[in-house]
Design a protein around this nucleic acid. Structure first.
Length: 687
DNA sequence: GAGCACTGC
C-alpha cells in the first residue's frame, strides 16, 4: 500500500498459526452442555502443561506465569489449583485491575464448574459481591484486596493469591505485591520459628504472579529469583506495516490509511486508535463527510466512536455487527487496548499516540495533574496490533516508522512513579507501614512522598511526628480520596453530613455530572442556570443531586434518563453518585456518624467542611484581580466551565487544578477568608 | 473564556 514499507512480520507479534480447537458442535445435539465446555477447556493451550504447572506451583512459594493472550491462564489456573488440593482449606483469590474483568471471569469459571456464581466460584468488586461460605475461588479487583488488608493484614482467609495482569503495574497492584511478599514471610516461617499465637495456626501463602513477557524478569528478581513459566497463547498472524517516513499529522494520516483500506482491501472491520475524544470526533466528522461523496459501488461505512466518557447507549453500538455490505470503522482510545475486546476486527490503524496523566508534585503539597499526548510504548503497540488477530489473519498499519517503534519505551512507567501517593500513604499508615521504608519493585519519587506527607499532615491525618491520628484512622474508613474523606469527617462537627455526602459522592464518581458537547453548549448552560447557587460549584452540585433524587424517587429508569437528557446532565454520573452516597451512609452508620444530620438551606456549614478538606486548594484574590494559591506559588484562573468564572470573590476553594493553556481551578466555591483562617492546623505555631 | 487517557475503594 502507498506510503507503507513492505510488509514486515517482526518478532514482536507471534506469527504462529493458531490451531483451531475442535468444538463438539451444537451442544443440544452432542450431549450435555458441560461436556462441550469440558472439551473446550481441554483444548486450551495451557491444558497440555497442566500437571507440570501444578507441580511447579506446588514446589515454589512464588511462581511467575507468563501467558500470551488466549492461553486460558486466568480461567484455568485457579481451577487447577482447586482440583489439585493445593489451596487446602483456604480460598484462592485472583486479582484484576478492572471490575468488569473480575465479574465476567467469575461468571465464566462458574459455568465451567457447573455452579452458579457466588457458590464455589464468586467475585467481589465495589458495589457488587457474589460469594458465600462455599466460595473457594474468588475473582476480586486489586483495590478490593488492598482494602481487605486494612481489616485482615495477613489475608488469612486466602491460601493462594494470584495477581493477574501484573504487568499493568497499577498503583494498587504494586501495593499488593509489596504486601504479599511481607505477608508470605510472616506466614511461611518454619513451624519451630513461628512460636505461639495466631500466626502459628496460619496456613502458608502461595503467590502466583501472572504477567506479560516483558516484565517477567523484574517480577522474578523482586521475589528472589522466582521461577518463570511460559504458557503459549493462541493468536492468528498479524502482518504489520510501518510508514516509510514519519507522519506529523497523525489524524490526516489515519484518514488516508482508512480510505486506502476501504477502497483496496477485502471486507473486515477497521479499528483506529486515537489519543482522545477531540480527535475521535474530528475523524468521525471527516469520514462521514467523505463517505457521502464516495463512489456508490464502495461498501457503506458505519462509524462507531468509543471512549470511556461516551454514554453507554452509544458505546453498545460497537458490539452490534455491521449489516451485510457495510464496513464498520471503530474510532477508539486505548479503552480498546485492554478493557474491551471488539469482535470482527481485521485491520488496525495505530497512530502511536495516547494521553497520559501525570501528577506534578510540589514540595508544598499543592501539585496538579497534567494530561498530555505522547508516544505509546512498545508493549502498547504490540497489544494494539494483536487486536487485529483475534478471529483470523489480520493487518496492522502503524503510522510511524520502524525506527520510531524501536525508539519507543518498552512499557509505561508504573503508576507508583507518577500518581499522587496521598491515599496509599494513609492506608499504609493504618497498617503501621511506612511508604518510605517498604520494599517496592519501583521506589516512589521522594518529592511525591514529601507532598503526600504534607497533605496528610494538613488534613490532620498525621501528627507532626508522622504518627497516624484518630482523625486519620476515621478518614481511612471511607472509600474516598483523603481530602473528601476529611470533609465528611468534619461534617459530624458541623451537622451537615446529609449535604456533604451528596456533594462528595458526585465528586468521586468516575464521570462528570455535566455533559459538555461543543455544539450544544449554549443551550445547556441556559437550562442549567436553575441549579446554580451563588456560592459556586459545590452547592450547585448539591442542587443537581437533590433534584435528581426527587426524580429518582418518583420516576422509573426511563423517566430519569429522559429528565437527565433534557437537563444536559450525565445520568451515569448521578446514578453512580447515588450508589456511592448509599455506601458512604453505611460507613457513617458503622462509625456512629448520623448521616441524617442536615443544615437545611444554610450553605455556611457545608462550605466550612469543604474548606477542611480543600485547605491546600485555596486561593486568594490579588489586588490585580488574579487568584494566588494560599499554599504554593501559582497564579490560578477559574476554569471557564465554573459558575464562578469571571466573578471576583475574596477567596476560593477548588477541587482540582488542570494545566492546559493556563493553570485552571475546576470545581470552585467562594468562601469567606475567615473560614480558611480558622482551620485548626493553620493556627499551630511553626506550620 | 475552554477541553474531558484509563482504572479503583
Amino acid at each position: 500500500m502507498k506510503g507503507f514499507a513492505t510488509p514486515l512480520q517482526p518478532a514482536d507479534i507471534d506469527p504462529r498459526k493458531r490451531r483451531r480447537f475442535s468444538t463438539p458442535g451444537n451442544p443440544s445435539l452432542n450431549g450435555p452442555q458441560s461436556q462441550c465446555i469440558q472439551a473446550q477447556r481441554a483444548g486450551l493451550p495451557i491444558a497440555m502443561g497442566k500437571d507440570a504447572l501444578i507441580e511447579e506451583i506446588r514446589k515454589n512459594d512464588v511462581s511467575i506465569l507468563v501467558g500470551e493472550t488466549g492461553s486460558g491462564k486466568t480461567t484455568q489456573v485457579p481451577q487447577y489449583l482447586l482440583d489439585s488440593g493445593l489451596a487446602g482449606q483456604g480460598m484462592i483469590a485472583i486479582t484484576q485491575p478492572r471490575k468488569v474483568a473480575a465479574t465476567s471471569l467469575a461468571a465464566r469459571v462458574a459455568t465451567e464448574q457447573n455452579v452458579s456464581v457466588g457458590a464455589l466460584v464468586g467475585y467481589s468488586v465495589r458495589f457488587d459481591e457474589a460469594s458465600s461460605d462455599e466460595t473457594r475461588i474468588k475473582y476480586v479487583t486489586d483495590g478490593m484486596l488492598v482494602r481487605e488488608l486494612l481489616g485482615d493484614p495477613l489475608l488469612s482467609r486466602y491460601s493462594v493469591v494470584i495477581v493477574d495482569e501484573a504487568h499493568e503495574r497499577t498503583l494498587r497492584t504494586d501495593l499488593l505485591i509489596t504486601n504479599l511478599k511481607d505477608i508470605q514471610r510472616k506466614r511461611n516461617l518454619p513451624s519451630d520459628a513461628k512460636g505461639k499465637g495466631s500466626v502459628a495456626k496460619l496456613n502458608p501463602l502461595k503467590i502466583v504472579i501472572m504477567s506479560a513477557t516483558l516484565d517477567a524478569d523484574k517480577f522474578s528478581n523482586f521475589f528472589g529469583g522466582a521461577r518463570v513459566t511460559y504458557i503459549q497463547g493462541r493468536q492468528y498472524p498479524v502482518t504489520i506495516y510501518h510508514t516509510t517516513v514519519s507522519q506529523p499529522d497523525y489524524v490526516e494520516a489515519a484518514m488516508r490509511t482508512f480510505w486506502q483500506i476501504h477502497m483496496d482491501q477485502p471486507p473486515g472491520d477497521v479499528l483506529i486508535f486515537l489519543p482522545g475524544q477531540e480527535d475521535i470526533e474530528g475523524v468521525d466528522r471527516s469520514i462521514k463527510l467523505f463517505a457521502d461523496r464516495s463512489p456508490r459501488e464502495l461498501p457503506s461505512i458505519v462509524v462507531c466512536p468509543m471512549y470511556a466518557a461516551l454514554p453507554s447507549s452509544q458505546q453498545a453500538k460497537i458490539f452490534t455487527p455491521a449489516p451485510p455490505g457495510f464496513r464498520k470503522c471503530i474510532l477508539a482510545t486505548n479503552i480498546a487496548e485492554t478493557s474491551i475486546t471488539i469482535p470482527g476486527i481485521k485491520y488496525v490503524i495505530d497512530t502511536g499516540k495516547c494521553k497520559e496523566k501525570r501528577y506534578v508534585a510540589r514540595d508544598s503539597g499543592t501539585g496538579f495533574d497534567t494530561l498530555l499526548t505522547r508516544d505509546i510504548t512498545k508493549s502498547s503497540a504490540m497489544q494494539r496490533a494483536g487486536r487485529a488477530g483475534r478471529e483470523g489473519e489480520g493487518f496492522c498499519f502503524r503510522l510511524y516508522t520502524e525506527e520510531a517503534f524501536d525508539a519507543m519505551r518498552e512499557s509505561a512507567e508504573p503508576e507508583i512513579r507518577r500518581c499522587s501517593l496521598t491515599s496509599s500513604m494513609l492506608q499504609l499508615r493504618c497498617l503501621d507501614q511506612d511508604l518510605e521504608e517498604l520494599d517496592f519493585m519501583d521506589k516512589p519519587d521522594q518529592e511525591a512522598i514529601g507532598a503526600a506527607l504534607k497533605t496528610l499532615y494538613l488534613l490532620g491525618a498525621l501528627d507532626r511526628k508522622r504518627n497516624l491520628t484518630k482523625l486519620g484512622r476515621d478518614m481511612a474508613m471511607f472509600p474516598l480520596e483523603p481530602n473528601l474523606a476529611r470533609a465528611v469527617v468534619a461534617s459530624r462537627e458541623f451537622g451537615c453530613t446529609l449535604e456533604i455526602l451528596d456533594i462528595v459522592s458526585v465528586l468521586s464518581a468516575s464521570s462528570k455530572p455535566f455533559f459538555d458537547s461543543s455544539d450544544e453548549r449554549e443551550a445547556a448552560s441556559e437550562i442549567r442556570r436553575k441549579f446554580r447557587h451563588r456560592s459556586g460549584d459545590h452547592m450547585t452540585m448539591l442542587n443537581v443531586m437533590r433534584s435528581y433524587q426527587e426524580i429518582a424517587a418518583s420516576e422509573k429508569k426511563s423517566g430519569r434518563k429522559d429528565w437527565c437528557r433534557k437537563q444536559f446532565l450525565n445520568e451515569r454520573c448521578l446514578a453512580e453518585a447515588q450508589e456511592i452516597r448509599d455506601q458512604l451512609r453505611e460507613v457513617c452508620s458503622r462509625m456512629q456518624i448520623d448521616w441524617h444530620a442536615s443544615c437545611g438551606e444554610d450553605e455556611q456549614p457545608v462550605l466550612k467542611c469543604l474548606v477542611r478538606g480543600l485547605v491546600q486548594h485555596a486561593a486568594y484574590l490579588q489586588p490585580d484581580g488574579s487568584y494566588k494559591q494560599l499554599m504554593g506559588p501559582s497564579i490560578v484562573k477559574i476554569h471557564p466551565s465554573s459558575s464562578l468564572c469571571d466573578k471576583k470573590v475574596a477567596a476560593i476553594i477548588y477541587d482540582e487544578l488542570v494545566y492546559t493553556t493556563h493553570i485552571y481551578a475546576r470545581g470552585v466555591s467562594a468562601v469567606p477568608r475567615g473560614y480558611i483562617a480558622e482551620v485548626p492546623i493553620l493556627n499551630i505555631k511553626g506550620t
